[in-house]
């Protein structure tokens, strides 16, 4: 059956409508998970709040396992799904920059908008900075264009690279995620003993 648009079940013109609907749901869930608070978000770096890790890992393992079952039942054709091309070093560097920005600013791009939606001043300033950053990046792009497009591995998956079936990765990742859930719970308890309760 799926994916719906490539298989012609939904006409291609609907993709923007679906994007808006999914965006609304995504924003609502981010806010509902407490992602509009920079204290919550930065807490993962200081060890007093692991809600980011839990929410994202839950989303990842549920989606991952769900997709594998959907594929098995014939509800979605995983071979037709778009896979983002991998640029090895640019992605590593980009991840590091993103991490530094995350812990310094207290938001990631998506969550800063949910922060604005509920009227957070820090989120507003973060977003202003975000646009200035985008502007500078666009102007300076020719300087690092070569690096930006280097190391293209194509649309590869872990299964393509290692030859290990996707289900083994899914199972291993789920075990790691579940262990992290329980592990971080203890870390949180220990760290929180020493700090006062904070406001979201």
């Amino acid at each position: 059956m799926g994916p719906l648009i490539p298989n012609g079940i939904i006409p291609a013109g609907w993709d923007f409508v679906i994007a808006i609907l999914l965006g609304i749901i995504f924003g609502f869930l981010l806010e509902a998970s407490g992602f509009s608070s920079s204290r919550n978000l930065a807490g993962v770096f200081y060890g007093y709040n692991f809600v980011v890790l839990r929410v994202f890992f839950t989303a990842v393992i549920v989606a991952m396992t769900g997709l594998l079952y959907f594929d098995y039942l014939g509800w979605i054709d995983l071979s037709k799904i778009f896979i983002l091309p991998t640029f090895l070093w640019p992605m590593i560097i980009g991840g590091v920059i993103m991490g530094i920005g995350f812990v310094a600013g207290g938001f990631c791009p998506g969550t800063s908008f949910t922060g604005i939606a509920i009227g957070k001043t820090d989120a507003l300033f973060f977003t202003i900075g975000l646009y200035i950053g985008i502007y500078i990046f666009s102007l300076a792009f020719p300087l690092f264009e070569k690096f930006y497009t280097s190391g293209n591995l194509g649309n590869v998956t872990l299964t393509d690279v290692t030859g290990i079936p996707a289900s083994w990765f899914a199972a291993a990742f789920t075990v790691i995620a579940l262990a992290a859930f329980w592990g971080t719970m203890f870390i949180e308890k220990k760290v929180r003993k020493n700090i006062k309760e904070y406001k979201f």
Partner: peptide
């Protein structure tokens, strides 16, 4: 609930290994 969900998730994830398409 956490314990129940953890076991369920673990069960489902390990189950994917036995799906032979």
């Amino acid at each position: 609930n956490y314990i129940f969900l953890t076991i369920l998730m673990l069960f489902l994830a390990v189950g994917t290994i036995f799906l032979h398409k």
